[in-house]
Amino acid sequence: MLIDQKMKMADVVLHDPTLVPIINRFGIHLGFGDRTIEEICEEHQLHLQFFVTILNAFHDKLYFPTEQLQSFKASLLIDYLQTAHRYFLDQKTPEIAAMIEKTIQEDEGNKKYYDLIKKFFNEYLEEFSHHIEQEDQVIFPHVLELEKALDSGIINQSLRNKVTLHPIAAYEAEHEDVEAKIFDLKNIIIRYLPTPKNDHLWYQILREIFTLEKELAEHARIEDMILIPKVEAMEKTIRGGK
């Protein structure tokens, strides 16, 4: 289903509750009453097209924005992506780590297994934080610089060189290993580890890992489908020497 601005926010969330964390990232919280997406955006002073594009990108795997892409600034998108990064690092992954810690505390007998999971998860976190840092400190500033140059019309030679030598297309290659680790984590829990006494907590951990994986895949898709095409278009303009 395609989401549009005339729909009531409540109906959209009733249809797809996994959108709640996304909506929260925009500072919008449950208790929408009967307001439409358009009304809510106005109230929160959000860019309507951008908000609707993000909702659709999360809701439908096959959604691909075309003309909407040009209607908002890259800086808006980067704000959003950075908020999402903070959600992953400050909220989501610490939650999972805390649940693993609790399992270790509660199940002395099998501690050695759960210690291994903890170690594995920490390794994953390290790699994941590194990946995010890379985006926050290298890629995003570069994109902002591009946008600023295009807005002001002042494009210096060093930027032109940078765009020619290191186009954005090279950048998503390293998503892969981070994803493979999550995949392994699921498999190890499902296939090989004994279930601890608190099997409900164990199931919660597993569910959270699946959710994390899904949210990350969607996050990566937003980068691939919205950020990258937008940056490629900017790079093309700069290379074109306009």
């Binding site: 999971i117 493979a180 498999n187």
Partner: peptide, 17 residues
């Protein structure tokens, strides 16, 4: 066979077993 792709995952499997 194991459904595990990464070296860390394989290491963990080897330790567990």
């Amino acid at each position: 066979k194991l459904g595990i792709k990464t070296v860390s995952g394989l290491t963990m499997y080897a330790l567990m077993n």
